[in-house]
């Protein structure tokens, strides 16, 4: 199996989908500069640099998507999505409904976030839950090179606007990616490690912290099940409900702030639908209600690490 970084996996997904479908195009801030191999193969009309103007990039994508193209746009960093909120939320997310189904918006928005580059809170803000709360949008956040490729291919083929969050700490971490056509469906979580004592549910970079924690917990005799959500909307409710029915204990882990985060939704659903299976209270580990600092130790401490996950899981299983 070839080894690719997520950056390369994204490039491979773009190239394959652009080859497959002539209506796919990609534009954004520095896209043609960074992806010159795509420019070489598909030409400057389908791989475009844009002004540093997120609103018009997203609006152009929404207008193009509704009229026959399938744009992928790169808005660089997730906090910059604030400049594109109207176009993504009010236009792409709502105009299908408002028009009584006259339009569809097959577009993908790429945005990086998370600690790792010391760039501070205006480049690092895990704001994925905002988009989960917005109707008409789908939201993805993969953790492995294989899923970066397979989920992006599915996102490009989907007829809805998809937010594709890239944990920047993962961007240059190589991983195995299956040869040939590799498509991962939206809305399907993945059990990375089966277990019976506690469910560790996560997405993005903290999935790897959960896997490391599971290793340490195994040494202490606790068999943890690790699930990578991958897709935050649609949410694979069956995956985590099935797991909690089995383990009776749930630990939800993400870098995004705990308050009104994706973990809060999952905790609420489990409390509503699997309460009788719970043998301990649900625990959420997530960032504080604070902007992310640039200073390295503060930036790193924002996201839950394996030690915190181990401690919380041990406390749950006591």
């Amino acid at each position: 199996m070839p080894t690719l970084t997520p950056f390369e996996a994204i490039g491979a997904a773009l190239a394959e989908e652009m080859r497959r479908d002539p209506t796919v195009l990609v534009f954004g801030e520095g896209v043609a500069t960074k992806r010159h191999d795509l420019v070489d193969e598909f030409g400057p009309a389908r791989v475009r640099n844009t002004p540093l103007a997120e609103g018009i990039i997203a609006g152009t994508a929404a207008g193009a998507a509704a009229t026959g193209l399938r744009p992928v746009i790169d808005l660089l960093f997730a906090p910059f999505l604030c400049y594109a909120m109207d176009e993504l939320v009010n236009s792409a997310g709502k105009l299908r409904f408002i028009s009584g189904g006259q339009f569809a918006f097959p577009l993908v928005t790429l945005a990086m976030t998370g600690g790792g580059w010391g760039v501070g809170a205006q480049h690092n803000h895990n704001n994925e839950a905002w988009f989960v709360h917005s109707p008409g949008l789908k939201v993805l956040m993969p953790s492995s090179a294989a899923d970066f490729k397979g989920l992006l291919k599915s996102a490009i083929r989907d007829d809805n606007p998809v937010l594709f969050f890239i944990d920047l700490a993962l961007l240059h971490q190589p991983g195995e990616v299956p040869d040939g056509e590799h498509v991962v469906p939206l809305g399907k979580a993945k059990v990375l490690r089966p277990g019976s004592d506690v469910t560790l549910l996560s997405y993005g970079k903290t999935v790897h912290a959960c896997l490391a924690a599971a290793e340490q917990l195994a040494a202490a005799g606790i068999v943890a099940e690790v699930i990578d959500l991958r897709s935050l909307k649609p949410l694979d409710e069956a995956a985590f409900l099935t797991s909690v029915h089995k383990t009776g204990r749930l630990l939800v882990v993400h870098e995004a702030a705990r308050i009104a985060g994706v973990g809060a939704e999952i905790a609420a659903q489990v409390a509503e639908r699997a309460f009788a299976s719970l043998r301990a209270p649900i625990v959420r580990l997530g960032g504080p209600d604070a902007p992310a600092a640039a200073s390295h130790p503060l930036e790193q401490a924002f996201a839950p690490d394996a030690a915190a996950i181990v401690a919380a899981a041990r406390s749950l299983c006591r």
Binding site: T60, A62, G63, A66, T67, D86
Partner: peptide, 8 residues
Amino acid sequence: SLATGVAL
């Protein structure tokens, strides 16, 4: 914001 995309 949408007109540019339709024209594209």
